[in-house]
Amino acid sequence: MIDKRILILTDFDGTIIKKDVGVALVKNFGPKNWENYEKKWIQREMSSKYVLTFYYESMFQSTQSTRKFIDFIDKNIEIDKNFYDFYNYCKRNKFEIYIISDGMSFYIDFILHKYKLDGIPYFSNLYIDNGDSIKIEFPYYNPKCGMCGNCKTNHLDKLLDKNTYVVYIGDGYSDRCISEKVDLVFAKNDLEKYCIENNINYIKYNDFLDVFRVIKSKFN
């Protein structure tokens, strides 16, 4: 048993949600050359702030409709159903849980509401639909680094205190920096590769059932 405040931080796309919502959207609605921008971001040649702005402005220009994105998400995107048991366990045990995402607010809002998980606080990039145009804002951008639109490490620093044990759950490139600064990392896909390459201790998981089992055994 760990006698500390327990802080659970989790990514959204590809973790709580089975697919990466942003990638699914850009594959379906985005410009033909979107993969070139993705590669440049992965290789740290371009900020996700720039890439995401380009993606969503291009997609909105071609569709003139955020509603089309929402309808696509509603039909094609599913939550990891195992997340419910994990989340309810965290609530019962008074573990603090936050979603930290380099994705967009409009689809996080929609999905959390759809699955009756509105009570989970989250930090993400902002997508503002003005009717005939959209505006993309990055309130948590860190210019000192500049690689991600939403700096996850900054959120960690603000939420952390000396008596905190931090768990992070992620799967992708925006999870790289924060994975180096927490007590326990659950990783898969690209985050797992990063942990291996950089000698970061982690626990491999496939879904939230794996995460739940480990957390229960560790904190009970």
Rank of each mutant, 00 (worst) to 15 (best):
Y141D: 01
H155N: 12
C195F: 12
I203W: 00
R213D: 15
V211F: 05
K152A: 10
C145A: 11
E197W: 04
I178P: 10
K162F: 11
K181M: 14
K188S: 09
K135C: 03
Y141V: 07
K135L: 14
K158I: 11
L156K: 11
Y202V: 06
D171G: 08
D171V: 01
C148N: 11
D161S: 15
I169L: 09
E137H: 11
L184S: 08
D183C: 04
K144A: 09
I99A: 03
Y122D: 02
S101P: 07
S105G: 05
N189R: 15
A187L: 10
F208S: 00
D207A: 00
I215N: 00
V214K: 14
D207L: 06
K181Y: 12
I169E: 04
D183I: 03
A187H: 03
Y98M: 01
E197A: 13
M104R: 03
V211L: 11
D183Y: 10
L126H: 13
Y141Q: 00
I100Y: 02
Y127M: 01
K158E: 15
L184N: 02
K188N: 04
K135P: 00
K193C: 12
L160N: 13
M147A: 05
Y115H: 15
Y122N: 01
K158M: 14
A187V: 05
Y141K: 12
K162G: 07
R213M: 08
S179R: 13
Y115L: 03
N163H: 14
I136E: 00
Y141C: 02
Y122F: 15
D183F: 07
L209S: 12
H113Q: 15
C195E: 10
K181H: 13
F212N: 11
S179M: 05
D171L: 07
C177L: 15
K188G: 02
P121D: 08
I128L: 12
